[in-house]
Amino acid sequence: MLKTLTRYKTLYLMLIPGIIYLLINNYAPMFGLIIAFKDINFAKGILGSDWVGFKNFEYLFKTADAYIITRNTILYNIVFIILNLVVAVALAVLLNELRSRFFSRFYQSVILLPYLISSVIIGYLVFSMLSAETGLVNKTILPMLGIDPVMWYNEWQYWPYILTFVKVWSSAGYLCIVYFAAVVGIDQEYYEAAKLDGASKMQQIFTITLPLITPVIIIMTLLQVGRIFYSDFGLFYQVPLDSGVLMPTTNVIDTYVYRSLLRNGDIGMSSAAGLYQSVVGFIIILASNYAVKKINPENSLF
């Protein structure tokens, strides 16, 4: 052991700043978990505040909105994971077919553009499309189709489709680049052998491309599954403009906690919600990884 340390002492010294950063940035803040079990009193401080056990967790489960926010959070994330996977893989395969030095970079830039735009800007872009008075949809598209204008921000039934479209539009580009990098890394000899055997382009995709990028697909999916109890706050708060009429389809755990914090100022309740999301997400990703490991150990995350 000592011989190994001496031999690679330079590498270990280079590792120290990274370890220090990891401890300060990722582990030191975990001390704040005790806030979820306390009735925070700023005069007493965090350590001096009274313990309340699991009382801070009760408001997530006893409120009348508990079912709605949990349902929305889980169902939206399931749909997002599935659609992002399908769209991103399809785009990656398409990019691979169109690949050349100029076009690959051009298409990567175009696809990544929505991902680089912040949720706030996306919210304004959506508003410019759906505004009842000046929106492109009401002023241009619907009249061309002979359809009466729609008060989008007063009609909750349209928003599951709107939010799903915006989410896929804004995040599939990033996933596409990840999958595209995996596709580009496939040895071209596989495709050449398939062509000699008379395989069509679709057969090559389903027998070579998809099977060889399956480990990357599983890893990316597992990482998303681990955050299934989290939501894109900007998407569900900024895009619907915090409209109360739309809450049956736009209210999720994150937005509910945020509104509760603004209304009640209870940090303990907000911390409890965050801890609840983290623990459940951790359990889900362990279970998902275990299932993958049982089916194919080589494709598991760990």
Score class of each variant (00 low, 15 high):
Val178Ile: 13
Val137Ala: 01
Gly135Met: 08
Pro114Asp: 08
Trp159Cys: 11
Ser271Leu: 06
Thr140Phe: 15
Ile141Phe: 13
Leu60Arg: 09
Met202Ser: 10
Ser128Cys: 05
Gly123Ser: 04
Met220Asn: 00
Asp65Lys: 14
Pro240Gly: 05
Val87Lys: 10
Leu125Tyr: 06
Phe229Cys: 12
Val245Gln: 09
Gly45Val: 05
Phe42Gly: 14
Gln277Asn: 04
Ser300Lys: 07
Tyr124Ala: 00
Ala66Met: 02
Ile218Met: 08
Ala199Tyr: 10
Ile267Cys: 00
Ile219Ala: 05
Ala64Trp: 14
Asp65Gly: 00
Arg105Gly: 00
Thr164Cys: 09
Gln238Lys: 12
Ala28Lys: 15
Leu47Lys: 11
Trp51His: 10
Thr250Cys: 06
Asp197Ala: 11
Gly281Ser: 08
Lys167Leu: 00
Ile69Arg: 07
Leu275Cys: 01
Leu241Asn: 13
Ile121Cys: 01
Val86Gln: 12
Tyr191Thr: 05
Ser171Cys: 03
Gly234Lys: 12
Gln108Gly: 03
Ile267Gly: 02
Ser278Gln: 03
Asp232His: 05
Ile78Tyr: 01
Ala132Gly: 04
Ile46His: 10
Leu112Val: 08
Glu58Tyr: 03
Met144Ser: 04
Ile177Gln: 07
Ala43Glu: 14
Ser170Cys: 08
Phe61Glu: 07
Val178Glu: 13
Leu75Cys: 09
Arg263Val: 04
Gly135Gln: 07
Tyr115Glu: 09
Ile285Thr: 13
Asp242His: 13
Tyr8Asn: 09
Ile295Pro: 01
Glu97Pro: 00
Ser231Ile: 07
Gly32Arg: 09
Gln238Trp: 10
Glu155Arg: 04
Gln157Asn: 15
Arg101Leu: 06
Met247Leu: 15
Gln188Asp: 09
Met220Asp: 00
